[in-house]
């Protein structure tokens, strides 16, 4: 076959693949994308009082029994380093939150993927805050304009972030918590009532799994 025709056929095939990807929305579940080798499946009722359900990423996911992940003890959480200040809180350390389940999320307001998680975080906060969950958003800026406190305050208001925010302008905590060379936004850690890390997830998604993990940690005795 003439190489040009071969390239044309390949190009058309590639275009078809892209159309299929666009048509499916790319939401096909990857069976490998499930945390942990051994998992415990439990049926848990989903939150009934969703915040802004139209924006909730969880609401777009297929309805299926919620899977509770294994929650291994990953050790006591690292310390917060060089936090320059806190917003929406009188708390100044994670130690003050002992006795509560804490979701520590690394984020920055300019990060698209972080913003995509916020509807779920709002829902989580609304559903479980009065049951013993606290969220601490560690704001670690990628760019200089994201380090300006006024911009963070404005963004938090615009984005509906009402939970405590720890300011990490030098990203010292961001890099201290995330081992290895690369560190990611967003990333969520769940701490049990004793301050041990029990769950860790990079990126968007797994909202049902995070809900189930929070419920399981809240159900654990203090």
């Amino acid at each position: 076959m003439n190489p040009r025709y071969a390239a044309l056929v390949a190009l058309v095939a590639l275009a078809a693949v892209v159309v299929v990807v666009a048509a499916t929305g790319g939401d096909t579940a990857d069976p490998d994308a499930v945390a942990g080798a051994a998992q415990t499946s439990v049926s848990l009722s989903g939150p009934t009082d969703r915040v802004e359900p139209d924006e909730s990423p969880a609401s777009t996911e297929p309805q299926a029994p919620i899977t509770s992940p294994d929650l291994p003890d990953l050790g006591v959480h690292p310390e917060l380093r060089e936090i320059s200040g806190w917003l929406h809180s009188d708390v100044t350390s994670l130690e003050e939150l002992r006795g509560r389940v804490v979701a520590v999320q690394f984020w920055t307001f300019g990060c698209r993927n972080c913003k995509n998680t916020l509807p779920h975080m709002r829902q989580l906060y609304a559903d479980y805050n009065d049951q013993g969950l606290e969220i601490v958003g560690v704001h670690a800026p990628e760019f200089s304009y994201e380090a300006e406190v006024d911009n963070i305050v404005d963004a938090a208001q615009d984005l509906g972030v009402t939970w405590p925010i720890a300011l990490d302008p030098g990203k010292r905590t961001f890099h201290h918590w995330q081992e290895g060379s690369r560190a990611f936004w967003p990333r969520i850690y769940l701490l049990d009532r004793d301050g041990h890390i029990r769950y860790d997830h990079i990126g968007e998604g797994r909202y049902d799994e995070i809900d189930a993990a929070v419920q399981a940690l809240l159900a654990e005795p203090a």
């Binding site: 499930v34 936004w185 860790d200 990126g203």
Partner: peptide, 20 residues
């Protein structure tokens, strides 16, 4: 961009690189 799939890959790679 760390979306759902890449996030799952990066998260799971911490416990088992080869499978990711």
């Amino acid at each position: 961009c760390v979306g759902h799939e890449l996030g799952a890959i990066l998260t799971n790679s911490q416990s088992g690189l080869a499978h990711q």
